[in-house]
Design a protein around this nucleic acid. Sequence first.
DNA 1: CGCATAGTTGACTACGCTCAACCCTGGTGG
DNA 2: CCACCAGGGTTGAGCGTAGTCAACTATGCG
Lengths: 204, 204
Amino acid sequence: MDLLTLNSLPEELHNTIVRHDLSKGETLFRQGDPASSFFVVETGRIKLVRYIGDDKVVTFQAVEPGNSLGEIALFSHTYPCSAVAEVASQAIAYPKEPLLSAIRANPDFAEDFIAMLVQKIQDLKLRIELRDIRAAHERLLRYLDYLAQSNAQNIISFDRPLKEIATDLGLTPETLSRALARLEREGKIARTRLQITLQKSSAA
Amino acid sequence: MDLLTLNSLPEELHNTIVRHDLSKGETLFRQGDPASSFFVVETGRIKLVRYIGDDKVVTFQAVEPGNSLGEIALFSHTYPCSAVAEVASQAIAYPKEPLLSAIRANPDFAEDFIAMLVQKIQDLKLRIELRDIRAAHERLLRYLDYLAQSNAQNIISFDRPLKEIATDLGLTPETLSRALARLEREGKIARTRLQITLQKSSAA
DNA sequence: CGCATAGTTGACTACGCTCAACCCTGGTGG
DNA sequence: CCACCAGGGTTGAGCGTAGTCAACTATGCG
């Protein structure tokens, strides 16, 4: 999940990577651009958007620091979506050819890279699982459960506005607000500001 | 996406794989089981289900022939979900250790394996994109567009009941039926049985 | 010729979205 | 120190649409 922590990152890659500084709203790459690099977000938040039909836009989950985007670049000629910085962000570009060579030359790195991809698959599956829960309060509870168990504690502190949590969850801010209120009313959570305490772990 | 077509499959793996024959409803592995193998579905259809809380069940997309499941096994001690055959199915198990060794020893195979994982990530993203379209008829149309362009033709023939298409799309059969009727009424598609013709490509 | 299952259609319900008003907080300037 | 303002957050009213339940039709198989 986090390429930055890979201890097997081959030295020869260090010379090939390029650091990108993006201001808010700036585009890292555009849908249809030639796919040249794989990226890892260092700071900020970069969202992936796809244009379908004439004017429809779909935003995937934004990519947070430590996570990657554009892995498709390794095996495709063009990017299937655009990447736009939601806030000022920094990203590291790993050009395709040197990266592939490094993977071929270095089994440890290959294994770590595969592990990262597998982790990403798990993350995406989790997201799909969440979206399949229709009731807002249940979806939220499941999301909180997940956050709690990845932090191994019952307290969750959000570091960004609820607005954005809402879009992550595929809900409107109003619905999220009501869902939070409902969980609180039902005694499932307690909260103070952006800090939430799970009252009873309903995790499996 | 399709490990079976990998031309780089190392010979030494051939001796380690195990073929599983599953009758309808039989379980390939259970949530929490020690993760021992990665699987590729040969025939049939295997669904992944996760039990959350006490009794809630979430079904991911069922895995079709040529696709893989349990890639998490390579880097985890247990399976995070169960795999159940929806219909009589065959799957090939690739035990973890030999598979990892083969990846390390064989760069071509490693690259193909990575390509498959990346393809899987794309598939999952597409699924998320679909789920973010709320209106049933629009979601369906987008799904049909996608199928059409991967077949490079405007005619789509379903090889399985609409019921299952519906759950794939995250809809009930009734809603899917109405969505199909609506698209037909609006002249966006024509249909005869399980064959559907897109009238106007709204693909980007 | 039934029987089982898939598909369709209708009536009703439920819940999330939309729009709008209001509250509350934090920052700025008089 | 307080008045004001902007933004996020909350709450309310109304609407639309997908889900649910149920009835009915169509299809395929014994």
